[in-house]
Design a protein around this nucleic acid. Structure first.
Length: 644
RNA sequence: GCCAAUAUAGCUCAGUGGCAGAGCACUUCCUUGGUAAGGAAGAGGUCAUGAGUUCAAUCCUCAUUAUUGGCUCCA
């Protein structure tokens, strides 16, 4: 007999070799019907796998993230089975579960696979699912594994097997389909009741662009048809929050083929929004001891040769601008830091001046790959809320920690609570991508790890994500469709001060080298606005709304009163417009609601007589009438509350 | 940059190898109204660009450009 400990702490006694499915059955039949797999001592196991010793067991159902991912992983096998029966020549790469669904990388050997095939594959999947084929696990020797896939002619699987250790190779079979797979899987295909292929995309084999590009099929499955319908509705809703769509609808920004791809044009309303964010940040920074500076959009090529950016990115950047003078070349600035280094060098610095915090809303230009451009989140010209802190080595941790506070303050003010702080370190093996000594890297990494620990920040560590000159702390946030974007970033840098020969005179009257911290709480205004739009679905907080009020006269007779009212509001720095169209009030209200204007001020005979307005709040309805001065006071009070 | 798809009115999208369509938006007129769409008329397009096939191309073919979904990259 063995002891099985369940998640609630209870211990049950079973015969040696019992499966988690049998454990479920012993608890309740209903539970057993929903068990997809089990977590045995922290490992995910098939529910029919025999347990040989005392273990901690957690039964996994659709409601557990691990249950879902097992379900989707098994679905990937089902997809592959369906594809194989429809495209016998197809060769298979890998097919993992992802956050929402799964994908399978497939080489169709020159055959087309597109939208038109989706239906057939989905149908085939459900047909195979109905057969309730068991997912059968078998341990195979490396030699047998190689011989099987050699016979089958699947080069990708063979390549994968090459990297595996003999004795640790398992196959899974459902129906006629056998796949190399570590597992684990759901009991049988019958659990899969709904399937939808979402899209296809190219993906390099093993993520290496030197390899062949396979067709990646993204799909999702559910144990109930209704859940698929709900998911598709959810996707539709998410699309409505897409900043590219709302940016157009709310007239915030646009792009023009003639101006150039990836070069955003801010429309008047978008510009208001952006300027408000800039002034918010400027104020926050001035309070924290930053000083604004301004530098030009171009810089001599020499500047970037010195900084090391030219060697690293020069070939893949906008190429140098030439002048009539020979050998004179300028670069569109891809970074503000070299300029700021030169500001630092303007005069000899004393340790008493440090930390010196130089801030600039600097517009930079980077030649992003054409396929990478995406709305406002990935562009070729953008403005960073950049600053560089020059400090003494012993001040790094304290300064870093202050910047974390600023980022958290910023996110808090805008209601961003669903972010991940990512500590971006060097790649663990490929060290040649980075400049600088081992010692300074270790010091910088240590400073970041300690500062984040002291802030109790929830962090993840990402190797290989560091900048080439130093480690970073990146604040990642998801857009409406679940894609992750980096917003704020804080980076410790020992290299640039060295390259620019920055120094300060210490208390010991000796020369010392300062450390730089690069930081941008928003990251880029463009990307930040994009994420902000999706975050609030275009329903901006009052202080950011490009149009805060709409004055809606009941009829033409009240246009004068409406204009007078609007004048008073403008004097009080309240932005908006008067809707003088020849439309009924219901129509004007509807249109203002669609434009997401926070307050609608209805004025007619009654209001004109009493020098008042009838206030309607977006999404809430009529608030009743108010005197003009009372509304202004109410409005200002709301603004104050929003900004604490 | 790579793979694939898409490109028709300001927007959202139908459509066809033989005179180019709808809804919304826009203009004008009627209407002067009380909290989410009043009515009528009108204007608006070299069907992304350039070649080719054809008696005839918005439609078929090829190339280019841009966009979309991924991959790779991301100072």
């Amino acid at each position: 007999m063995i002891n099985i400990t369940l998640p609630d702490g209870s211990v049950r006694n079973y015969e040696k070799g019992i499966s988690s499915m049998d454990i479920a059955l012993s608890i309740s039949e209903g539970l057993a019907r929903n068990v997809l797999a089990a977590k045995v001592n922290g490992e995910i196991w098939d529910s029919n796998r025999a347990i040989q010793q005392d273990s901690k067991v957690q039964l996994l159902t659709w409601n557990d993230p691990e249950g879902k991912s097992t379900f989707w992983h098994s679905s990937a096998h089902l997809l592959a089975e369906a594809i194989e029966s429809l495209f016998p020549d197809a060769k298979f790469g890998i097919g993992p579960a992802i956050e929402n669904g799964f994908y399978y990388d497939i080489d169709f050997m020159g055959k087309d696979f597109s939208q038109e095939n989706f239906d057939a594959v989905e149908k085939k999947m459900l047909e195979l699912a109905k057969q309730k084929n068991e997912y059968k696990r078998s341990e195979v020797s490396k030699a047998d594994a190689i011989s099987y896939f050699t016979k089958k002619g699947d080069p990708y699987k063979l390549e994968l097997i090459e990297g595996l250790q003999d004795g640790q190779i398992t196959f899974y079979q459902q129906g006629n389909f056998v796949d190399l797979c570590r597992g684990s899987h759901i009991p049988n295909t019958g659990f899969i009741k709904a399937a939808k292929i979402l899209n296809v995309a190219g993906a390099y084999w093993r993520g290496n662009e030197k390899n062949k590009m396979l067709t990646r099929i993204y799909a999702i499955t559910f144990p109930k048809d209704k859940e698929l319908k709900d998911y598709l509705t959810l996707l539709e809703e998410a699309k409505k929050r897409d900043h590219r769509r709302l940016g157009k609808e709310l007239e915030l920004f646009t792009f023009s083929e003639k101006v150039g791809m990836g070069l955003p044009l801010w429309l008047p309303k978008g510009a208001i929004l952006r300027e408000r964010l800039e002034s918010f940040m400027r104020q926050a920074q001035v309070k924290r001891g930053y000083q604004q500076v301004i530098t030009p959009h171009i810089g001599s090529k020499e500047l970037y040769v010195t900084s090391g950016h030219y060697a690293k990115y020069g070939a893949d950047s906008f190429q140098p601008i030439r002048t009539p003078d020979v050998d004179e070349e300028f670069l569109l600035k891809p970074m503000n830091c070299p300029h700021h280094c030169e500001i630092y060098k303007f005069k000899p610095r004393s340790y008493k001046e440090l930390p010196l915090r130089l801030a600039e809303f600097g517009t930079v230009y980077r030649y992003e790959q054409s396929g990478e451009l995406h709305g406002l989140t990935r562009v070729r010209g953008f403005t960073q809320d950049d600053a560089h802190i020059f400090c003494r080595p012993e001040q790094v941790k304290e300064e870093f920690s202050r910047v974390i506070d600023l980022v958290l303050y910023t996110f808090g003010a805008l209601g961003f609570d669903d972010y991940v702080a990512q500590i971006s370190l060097r790649h663990q093996t490929e060290r040649e991508k980075y400049i600088g000594s081992e010692e300074t890297w270790e010091r910088a990494e240590q400073d970041i790890i300690e500062a984040t620990a002291e802030k109790n920040l929830k962090t993840v560590i990402a190797y290989g994500e560091a900048a080439f000159y130093g480690p970073k702390l990146d604040f990642m946030i998801k857009d409406a469709l679940g894609r992750k974007w980096q917003l704020g970033t804080i980076q410790v840098d020992y290299q640039l001060p060295e390259r620019f020969k920055l120094e300060y005179i210490g208390a010991d009257n000796q020369k010392h080298q300062p450390v730089m911290i690069h930081r941008a709480p928003f990251g880029s205004l463009e990307r930040f606005v994009a994420v902000l739009i999706e975050h609030c679905a275009g329903n901006f907080p009052l202080w950011l709304s490009p149009e805060q009020i709409a004055v809606l006269p009941i009829s033409e007779k009240y246009h004068d009163y409406a204009e007078k009212l609007f004048g008073i509001l403008q004097e009080n720095d309240i932005k908006g417009f008067v809707d003088q169209r020849d439309e009924k009030i219901g129509r004007k209200i509807r249109d203002a609601e669609m434009k997401k204007v926070p307050f609608m001020l209805v004025v007619g005979e009654k209001e004109q007589e009493t020098n008042s307005i009838s206030v309607r709040k977006k999404g809430e309805g009529d608030l009743g009438s108010m005197e003009i001065s009372a509304f202004v006071a109410y409005f200002k009070d709301l603004l104050k509350k929003e900004l604490n």
